[in-house]
Simulated assay, not measured.
Amino acid sequence: MKAEPVHQRRLLDVQDLDTALGRVAHRRRTMPEATQVQELDARLSELRDALAAADTALADIDREQRKAESDVEQVRTRTDRDSRRLDAGQVSSPKELESLQSEIDSLRRRQSELEEIVLEIMERREAAEERRSGLQRELEEATATRATAEERRAAALAELKAEESELQQQREQAAAEIPDDLLALYTKLRDQYAGVGAAALRQGRCEGCKLALSTAELSEIRTALSDEVVRCEQCRRILVRTPESGL
């Protein structure tokens, strides 16, 4: 392939711009701001799940408390009823009186036990409510932090887009000066070799694969016509001669 030396050197400008565009793309993929947003999204999901579980636990405790309070009320009602019978002298026989008094004593013990259960449930509910309140505060704080992180991500992304747009414009201008066949070869090689399709020959070394050329290879390049497109024998990239090639 033939190409004017100026076009071959211009190819290095395109390569530099493509490398810069690749760095911008890498920075976009690895933005710490984006990573923080992802981490906060995961944390928000965990907090929402924990809050839902806390709500369910509170609902269960509330049902348990209502049941225990209902049991207390039922026992209290029976105790009051039996006490009124006793106070009204509606019991005639000593045996029935003894039985009624025993039942009242038993009901009062049961009421005391149930009231202890209610107190224990209320304590558990208070602890569950505190946990829920704590989770709600964490969720609100994480939501605010996520909003701030999203603003930083958007700002960083806008900067990257602006930089990318400028580089892309420069790349298009540089590529327009290169013959189509040379640009097509460069594009093909760039796709094959990790984003580097052309490299400078600097002090006898290929800047693409970083290997020094042999004396025979350098001699062959030295005798090649200036418009001859040469390739590195090691990495097969386009090798561009410059005043620093050491030929």
Rank of each mutant, 00 (worst) to 15 (best):
E150S: 13
A175I: 08
A154T: 09
S93H: 08
D49F: 05
V91T: 08
T223Y: 02
L119D: 14
D191H: 12
E4I: 03
V240H: 04
Q38H: 07
E98C: 01
D80N: 13
L218D: 04
E177C: 02
R146F: 03
K67Q: 14
K161A: 14
R153T: 00
R190A: 11
S165V: 00
I221K: 05
E130S: 14
S45W: 05
E115C: 09
L135R: 05
L183R: 09
M31Y: 06
R27L: 07
V118T: 14
L189H: 06
R241A: 10
S93M: 04
M31C: 10
R236I: 07
Q8E: 04
R222M: 04
T242E: 06
A142S: 14
E39V: 06
A52W: 00
V196S: 03
I121A: 10
A147T: 15
L100N: 07
Q234C: 03
R23W: 03
E163P: 01
G22M: 04
H7F: 08
T187W: 02
E140C: 03
R43Q: 12
R108V: 01
L189V: 12
L12A: 08
E129Y: 11
L189Q: 07
D191N: 14
L51M: 09
L225M: 10
S93L: 10
R241H: 04
D16M: 12
A53I: 03
E126Y: 10
E141M: 08
E220V: 11
V14T: 09
T223I: 11
A57K: 15
S245T: 07
Q169R: 13
Q169S: 13
E244C: 09
L21V: 01
R236G: 05
E64F: 10
E141A: 14
R132L: 06
H7L: 07
G197Y: 04
L201M: 03
V230S: 06
A34F: 08
A68F: 02
R132H: 13
V240E: 02
D49S: 09
E98H: 10
T145D: 15
K67E: 15
E116F: 13
R27K: 06
R84K: 13
